[in-house]
Structures are given as structure tokens and as C-alpha cells.
Simulated assay, not measured.
Amino acid sequence: MRMLAENGIATPDDLAQVVPPAARLARGPVAIAECFQNIPCDPCYHSCKQGAIKEFTDINQRPQIDFDKCNGCGTCMSRCPGLAIFVVDAAYGEQEALVKLPYEFHPLPAVGDVVTAVNRAGQAVGEARVVRVQNAQAQDRTAIIWLAVAKDLMMEVRHCKVKGVG
């Protein structure tokens, strides 16, 4: 397996450091910060009204989420310049989970569209149904797409491709 530094794709060991415990995932929406580099960046901390993103002692450290405080609102997602924060809701349905992801492409998918669900490596892993599209001016051109996906894909799906485009 190639490493994150070589190909930009998080390894299972990388992900184990940032994924909430299964019991927390089962309780409802929660943010996951897949930010794996120490860089000078902290907009996620300043945007979190719940206090769920722990205060940085050094602006170069990676965000740490207090999963018990996080309500999965997703405010931090559109503030992350690296598009590295996602919200997963395993309690969304019996067969489906909800994945909220940042999206900065055109055209935006529409509610009800069936899109191709894509993993961290850019590979298609299945289909997803667009449940909601948030694109308010306050989000500064970073839309948040809500995707209903098969539960077994909720930790894999990190992007989507509008069918018939590109």
C-alpha cells in the first residue's frame, strides 16, 4: 500500500486516527476532519459554534474533533480551504447513511439526482442519491452536497460525479 505522502490518499492507519467510534457514528451526524498535514490553517476551529473542534495550541497542528460535542451541522465544511471535512450520519436510515461533502464544481447536482459516488482515490464505488444541496452566499462558493449512500459505503464516499458530465 502506498503512503499518503506519495499519492495523497489516506491509509487505513491515517483514517483510524480521525474516525469517530462506532457508538458515536450510530448516534447521528458527526464531522470527520480528514486533514492529515500540519499546515498553518484553523478556519474550522473558528467556525464551530458547538466548540467541537478543539482549540489549536499551534496554528500548524491538525484539527481534533470532540465527537461528543459535534452535532454534524457542517458549518466547518465550507470553511475548510482543503475540503477535508465531511459529515457522516449512520442513523439516517436502515439501509442508507448520509454523507455531507464540500463541492466546488459545476454543474451542481440537483435534489433527487442519482450521482456516481467516488472514493478518496477518485474511483467510482457506487451510486448516491442527492438529498439536499446547500449553496448559501455565506458558504463562500463551497456548496455542501448531502448524499444518501449504502451504509457500507459511508466511510468510503468522499466525492461525487454528476452523470453525463466529464
Rank of each mutant, 00 (worst) to 15 (best):
M1K: 09
M1H: 12
M1V: 12
M3L: 14
A5Q: 15
E6L: 14
G8I: 01
I9F: 09
A10Q: 05
T11A: 03
D13P: 07
L15W: 05
L15S: 02
A16E: 10
A16K: 01
Q17W: 08
P20K: 00
P20H: 01
L25E: 05
R27F: 01
P29I: 00
P29K: 06
V30K: 06
A31G: 13
A33Y: 07
F36S: 08
F36D: 07
F36G: 00
I39F: 12
I39T: 14
P40E: 10
C41T: 13
P43G: 05
P43M: 12
Y45R: 11
H46C: 07
S47H: 05
C48V: 01
K49V: 14
T57P: 09
D58W: 05
I59T: 10
N60Q: 13
N60D: 10
R62L: 07
R62V: 12
P63C: 04
Q64A: 13
I65G: 03
D66R: 00
F67A: 06
D68C: 07
C70Y: 02
C70K: 06
C73A: 08
G74N: 09
G74V: 08
M77K: 00
S78A: 12
R79M: 15
C80G: 07
P81G: 06
P81F: 00
G82Y: 10
I85N: 02
F86E: 13
V87Q: 06
V88N: 11
V88Y: 11
Q95L: 14
V99L: 09
L101E: 08
P102Y: 13
F105H: 15
H106K: 08
L108V: 08
P109L: 03
V111K: 12
V114K: 15
V114P: 01
A117N: 07
A117S: 12
V118D: 13
R120P: 10
R120S: 11
G122H: 00
V125D: 03
A128L: 02
V130I: 06
V130Q: 03
V131C: 04
V131H: 02
R132S: 11
V133D: 05
V133A: 03
V133E: 01
N135Q: 11
A136N: 02
Q137N: 05
D140K: 10
R141I: 01
R141M: 10
I144T: 09
I144Y: 01
W146I: 04
W146T: 01
A148G: 00
A150S: 07
A150Q: 14
L153V: 12
M155I: 08
V157R: 06
V157T: 09
R158I: 03
K161I: 14
V162E: 12
G164K: 04
G164D: 04
